[in-house]
């Protein structure tokens, strides 16, 4: 499953996509994200995978500066994901 967490508003589209078909639930993204956007939990089909915390989906565009801008600061969520499950729309 491709899970798109985020929103679109007048200022643009802000979606973080997690491909749960490849995610192995290792939790590295949750560990490195400076805004603590991610968590690992069983989904509706009992697969343990990463997801954006439900309470934060409406503010991903505020809490996450966007992939390009985060990359030069910290070990980012894309870099630590061995299977390449995470992508950003901005």
């Amino acid at each position: 499953m491709k899970a798109n967490y985020g929103y679109a508003d007048g200022s643009g589209e802000y979606f973080i996509t997690i491909d749960t078909d490849v995610c192995d639930g290792c939790g590295e993204c949750a560990r490195v994200c400076p805004s603590s956007l991610f968590e690992v939990a069983p989904d509706d089909y009992d697969q343990v995978v990463a997801r954006v915390k439900e309470k934060l989906t409406r503010s991903v565009g505020v809490l996450c500066p966007g992939y390009e801008r985060c990359r030069d600061k910290v070990p980012d969520c894309h870099a630590v994901c061995r299977v390449g499950a995470i992508s950003h729309s901005w």
């Binding site: 499953m1 899970a3 679109a8 508003d9 007048g10 509706d44 409406r58």
Partner: peptide, 14 residues
């Protein structure tokens, strides 16, 4: 079974 989804509940315009 869900293959792909996107939801928008942040902006009234959507």
């Amino acid at each position: 079974k869900v293959v792909n989804f996107a939801m928008n509940d942040k902006c009234a315009a959507g």
